[in-house]
């Protein structure tokens, strides 16, 4: 454990430049948004938009951090790989570290979302806002982990291929493989048997909206209003599948790096 902690400490130092870049960009966006918004007299609205945009970018941020970290290691792969620890140990230190870095700006952007949302509109009560934020938070976090797992998996394939060919060709083939896999996975998820397998434990939109005042607005066309409220926000089954996918990708990545990637 001490070995892993010491490694994690190293990873924090290694990824620090990437974190600083992201943090500076984030602050820059917000400051920029503030001045532009103020010019047009819509500071809060613009800042809400910017912070929402920043929040959604966080789904990619973990993968970006990992890209930065692994790309730095790549120049001296022997330093990273000449270690008695398993690849899952080595990789988990990176994932943990960069996840922490991601959470810092993510927490800031989510807080700003809530603040500016409340300043822009008082449409939702506290409870609703809390539900909504919580669900979005979990979705974003899972998405970012999923994107990171996909990135790591294809990175390991890219590294394996680049031993046999130049980086450009390796990248092209890896990319095509990625496109093909996404397409094939899309086909699978469209299958009805897959959907029966995963579409359970639904969380409906109305589950999250407590004392929803908008009901009034839908009165004239109550049918569509009800449909909207009863439509599914997210399935717990989907989340479970996503978690399984993340774990499977992680171990596949470890297997590939352990056996195929060479210094």
């Amino acid at each position: 454990m001490n070995t892993w902690l010491a490694l994690t400490k190293k990873e924090f130092k290694l990824s620090l430049p990437a974190f600083i870049i992201a943090a500076v960009l984030f602050v820059g966006f917000m400051v920029g948004g503030y001045f532009i918004g103020r010019n047009f007299g819509y500071a809060d609205e613009v800042l809400l938009g910017v912070s929402l945009f920043a929040s959604s970018l966080h789904t990619l941020l973990l993968a970006f951090y990992l890209f930065y970290s692994l790309n730095t290691e790549r120049k001296r792969l022997h330093l990273w790989l000449h270690n008695p620890m398993s690849i899952s140990g080595l990789l988990s230190a990176k994932i943990f570290t960069n996840f922490v870095y991601m959470i810092i700006t993510f927490a800031a952007s989510i807080t700003l979302n809530v603040i500016f949302f409340q300043r822009v509109t008082d449409l939702f009560n506290q409870q609703t806002l809390f539900n909504l934020t919580g669900t979005l938070l979990i979705m974003f976090l899972f998405s970012s982990l999923f994107v990171a797992a996909v990135f790591l998996f294809f990175w390991s394939i890219f590294m394996t291929l680049s031993q046999k060919m130049n980086d450009f060709l390796s990248f092209v083939i890896t990319f095509l493989l990625f496109v093909f896999t996404s397409w094939a996975l899309g086909k699978v998820t469209d299958l009805s048997f897959y959907q029966t397998l995963t579409q359970w434990g639904e969380i409906k939109i109305q589950d999250m909206f407590v004392g929803f005042e908008l009901n009034v607005d839908f009165d004239s066309q109550s049918a569509s209003g009800d449909t909207f409220l009863e439509s599914t926000f997210i399935y717990i089954g989907d989340i479970i599948v996503e978690i399984i996918g993340i774990i499977a990708l992680f171990f596949a990545t470890c297997w590939i790096i352990e056996r195929k990637v060479e210094v």
Partner: peptide
């Protein structure tokens, strides 16, 4: 390794 590489932050 024959490479002259270290972690620059250490």
């Amino acid at each position: 390794s024959e490479l002259d590489e270290y972690y620059s932050f250490f």
